[in-house]
Each structure stands twice: as structure tokens, then as C-alpha cells.
Design a protein around this nucleic acid. Sequence first.
DNA 1: AATAGTATTGCAAATGTTTTCATAAATTCG
DNA 2: CGAATTTATGAAAACATTTGCAATACTATT
Lengths: 350, 350
Amino acid sequence: MANLQKGRVDIVAVAKAANVSPSTVSRTFNHPDLVNPATRKKINRAIQRLGYIRNRAAQTMHGKRSGTIGLVVPTINHAIFAEVIQAFSDSIDKVGFSLLLASHGYDLDREYAMVRKLLEHRVDGVALVGLEHSDATARLIEQQKTPALAIWNYAQDSSLPCVGADNRLAGRLATEHLLALGHRNIGLIFPKTDGNDRAQHRLSAVHEALAKMGVSVPDEHESETPYSVSQAKQAAITLLTEQSRPTALLCGNDVIAQGALFAAQSLGLKIPDDLSIIGIGDFKGSADVEPGLTTIRIPAETIGKLAGERFTDYITSDDPAPFRICCELERVVRGTTTLASIGCVANSGV
Amino acid sequence: MANLQKGRVDIVAVAKAANVSPSTVSRTFNHPDLVNPATRKKINRAIQRLGYIRNRAAQTMHGKRSGTIGLVVPTINHAIFAEVIQAFSDSIDKVGFSLLLASHGYDLDREYAMVRKLLEHRVDGVALVGLEHSDATARLIEQQKTPALAIWNYAQDSSLPCVGADNRLAGRLATEHLLALGHRNIGLIFPKTDGNDRAQHRLSAVHEALAKMGVSVPDEHESETPYSVSQAKQAAITLLTEQSRPTALLCGNDVIAQGALFAAQSLGLKIPDDLSIIGIGDFKGSADVEPGLTTIRIPAETIGKLAGERFTDYITSDDPAPFRICCELERVVRGTTTLASIGCVANSGV
DNA sequence: AATAGTATTGCAAATGTTTTCATAAATTCG
DNA sequence: CGAATTTATGAAAACATTTGCAATACTATT
């Protein structure tokens, strides 16, 4: 039955089998309305019979779109980006695009290499995480005139179109929540900020908000940790066993906050009575730990979905209009934060 | 300085700028040893100056490899696959391949569609998760003679080359651990098994191991839940508030086990004294929850890395030899399991 | 110095599509 | 019924590369 071709079966093989010209076969795919329904049927039968699969590479070469979109993320491995990647992938898939995915491990030079690689594949567009990129990357994108998009971050004056959230605001909201609860002795655990404008913006906003209230953070209450639950846990243990323990911990993201939570639990601290913890992100799982993690929610799924929709629109549009979309943050209060109690304050300094 | 071309800059533009023929430029990329070092230098300068970027689509069309590998996973979103994807991506990147990623949400028909889509892009190979796929998918791969690989699962008689672990063994090991600790009243929480041979194999092995010891699981101690911490938590709460509570919970994967852990904690149960919990997978984070999750470790990173290496070898080899690699499982005993105590047994049935 | 290699380069064909233009057939209209 | 459209198809050029073959220039050998 199945007519197994040893040699490649291409559009002309189909044409021959259906007794038409290659042009007609091509048209059946690209402008079906221009070909007689009867002929179309004949052709479709031939396609079926031969097991023909269109060759996007050949299309691409002809100047048509490649049907691929490149996405370059710092890391795939961790909760944060997995969710955006999924949403972005689903979103572009709906309109027929495929996802070329690359990661650079927070190294902007590798990011450049990855973008270049994607450009070799003639992606129809390339999406990057964040707004901070090397000059070389910016130049590359500019020069090739490839549509580009920044996701995850929002800035009203971004050079690229963007879909994301305001990380400064996130930092401020988290700080204000702790401040409003009466905390004045606050510890900070953040990831490294170079090449990571998300963390950078959050942290600087935290400092500003703190300063505005006249609160300062002693050095030993400020800790830097890589992006992993276990390493954050270690860092938190160190910080929490300092001379004077803070009454609250503000963490650069939810992964770190989870690490801090586990650290506190392993030290026998009661959360939130002995220590309040707030994260940023609201990743999958943050709602489910015990107690539930208070956090500033960044709507990863919405960002990914919206980014996919708007970007494919942009790419396929005749006269594309640049856009900037700011996704709403939301303060999600769960069980890890509470009022800075007298007892708690008394507890510090021991 | 930068010679911004408005029109596309292609290999002939470079050739012109370097005063050589296009063939020579092409050779500079593909067989550098065949071209005079001096000429090569001239050409490289021209490439730099014009900002030329190779067009893989055109290469592909010529019959060369496309330099892309397709990976189709059930979901990107969750901890399990994120880790393999990362390792696989890094691994193939090292030898110059790019990753086309697609997900199907545990729907084998969508899997077929995704594979087809990747084939249109003329991927040099396609990697699938698991060994169970629709006939259509198998036929497609067979017919197109595209190298294919199954990752995550291992079976000595798999039809595709595979790199993965033995899920039956994983199920058995988990069961035996609980049994060895004296547990006889065991609850099971697993994901749905259709279109998911990992879960299927694990669950059937669990039942076999249990039966061998004459242990049976009453219906109300067997629960099915989607793949999410929060839903697993719900399911676990339901199961744990049954008439007779089991002394141990065996979970189909670590995400479910985490949900179960949080459920138990929210019910005020002491882990592991009141209830032992074991998972399968050892995902990122499993080591860090409090107490640490006992689990059967599936080495996701090793699988991804190895799969990438072997598959690219296979693809680039002149006479590829099929292979099957079984990655070792490891029992990781942490804090969520302990001996079935008298007290614990007495506690049940209440 | 003549011959036989060897190293370097160019020419042209080939790859699988899409699309413009032209042609032929069928339909509509007055 | 003939002219004017409309519909359906085919021929051929174009897209950006790679590579087999041929040509040329250079080097080594006797």
C-alpha cells in the first residue's frame, strides 16, 4: 500500500503522480482557492500516496518566511522561564510557527553567539529575555533587520518592542509590603546582577524604597546567591545564623525565597511568626509550599502567551507597528509574611 | 565603517567584495583547508565588513544537513523535562546543532502533528520522550528515514534507539524500599497512564512488587492526579482523610510527592513519623524541601547530555549503528521515609 | 628544462520551492 | 453568437548555496 520512495519525494514527484505541473501543487498549498477543487483532490491523493512532506527550507530560500521563531533564554532549567517558554511555544504554534530555542546561562557573549546561530537559520524573528544585551547583539539585530522582541521586562523607553513586567515596581511592592507590616530589620537575598537586568532593577528599587523610609540594610544582612533552591538555602542559613537575625527576608525571586523558607524551617524557626519571607515571581509551586509563599506575582504565562501573539502578528503584518506591553503585577499574600511582632523584634539581636 | 547593506548580502556579494568566485567563499566555510590562507583572510575580511551571515536554509536545500534537531516533549512547563531539555540543548549545541522544540501535552495525536511539523523543517533527527507513540508517528519516521531517538525510557527491545532509565525498575525500587521499612498499608498517587508509558511502567511494577509480598491496595488508597503540585496536594488531602489512613505514600513522581508532603504538613501530620512518602525522579528541589524527599533518582541531566552526544554522533556518522543506553537509577533516602512504627500502625484505621 | 604532480580557483549544474507571466479554457453578457 | 471576463494551469526564472569537473598556476623530480 504505502508507496515507500527510496529517493526523496518532492513537489515534482507529486506533480507527476497527479498529472499536473509543480506550480499547481505549490498553489494547492499556498493559494488553494486558485486551484480547481477536483485537481486539488487529485493532488492531495498523490501527496497522501507518496507521503510527501513540504520542504520549508526550500520555501525559506525562496524568500518566504521560514516559519521559525528563535527564543533565547538565560536558562531553560529553572521554574521561571520554563513557564514562559511553554506559553510562548503554544502561542506561536497556534499560528504555524516553530520554536528554535537556545540558552546562554546568563552570559551575554554566549547570547550573541546564540542569536547569530538563530539568524543563520533565518528565523522570522528572535525573542530575547530582558532589555540588557551586548552592543554586538543589538548591532547584529539592527543590521539584519530581523524582527526582535524583548520579553519578561517592561520599560516605556525600551529600544526593542517588549512584553513584560516592571521589575522596579516588583521590588518596590515587595519592600512596601514588608514595611507596611512593620518590619525594619530586613534581610536581602538576591542573585548576581550582572547581565541580569531583572535582578538589577528589583534590587535597586528595593534599596530606594527602603531608603525612603530611612531603613538601611547592614552588609551582613545582604547576601548574593546563584539561582538554585539548595544554594539559596545555604545562603539563607548563613544569613539567619548571624549575630542579629532580621525579622523579614526579601528574596530576589521565588526560587530563592523557597530556599530561604526551607532554611528557616531546618533551623527550627516558625514561619511567619519568627521570620517573614517574601519572594518575587510566583512560580509554579510557590502557592503549594507550607506555608504558602507571599510573593509579587509576575504573570509568566500571560507574558509568554501575549508575547507569542503580538510577535507573530508583528512578523506577519505588512506594516508592523512597534509595541510595548506592560503586564500587571499582583501582590499575593500567603502564609509566609506577618506583622513584625514585639516578640519577633525581641527575638532579633540574640 | 559598518557597511550596512540595504539589500540582502549573500555569498556572491561577499565573493564580489573579496574578488573571488562564490565557490571559493563557500569553500572557505565548508572546506577551509582547500583554500589558500591568503584568500581566506581576504574573504573573512569581506564577510566581516559586509556583516554576512550564512544561510542554513540554502545549505539545507542543497542536501547538506540542516543543523537542527527536533525534540518533542509532553510538556516544557514542569520540572522533569526542563532539566533534560537543558542538558540536551547544551549537548547538541556543542557540536553546532540547534534545537527545534515542540510540546504536545500528553496527546499522541498532537505529537504526530509536531513531528510532522519538524520534518517539514528538515530536522536532521527527531527525539521523542518515551517509547509509546502512535502508529502514524512511527510510520512517518520510518518512511522519511529521519534518524529518531527515544529518550527518558529504556527498554532492551525498543524499536527506536533509546537513552533512558528503566521505569519498571524505578517502580519496583520505590516499592521495595517502603516494604523493607515494614510498611504494608501503602497509598498510591499516580498520574494518568494513557499515552504515558513512564507512569504506566512504574505503576504496574509497583503492583507486581506489592502482590509478590501479598500486599494489596484498597481502591480508596489509590488516587489519580494531574501533573501539578497543587492538584496532587488536593488529591493527597482527600486520600489522607479517608477512613483508614495508609502509613506510607508512594507517588508516581516527585512533583506529586511534593504535593503529598505539603498536604500532610497542612493536615498537621509529622513527616516521616506519621507518614512516609517516597517519590520517583529526584527533581530539582526534591533535596531541598523540609524534610528532604526520599526518592528514586532518574538522572535527567545525564540522560539529556548522553542523548545529545550519542544522537549527534549517530546523525553525523557514515554508518550509524543503533544504540540503547540504560542510565542507572539510584535510591536516594532522605527525610520523608522511616520505619513503619507501631504507633504509626495504631494510628491507621482511626 | 621537460614532465608529472599538486594546490588553488572558477564554471556551471543542481537542490526544491514560489511566483510572475502567459496561455488556454470556460463563463458571462449584451 | 461573439466579445469580454474570469478561472485554471503551465513554463520558466529566481532564491542562496554546494560541489564535480575542468582549468590554471605552481612545485618537485629527474
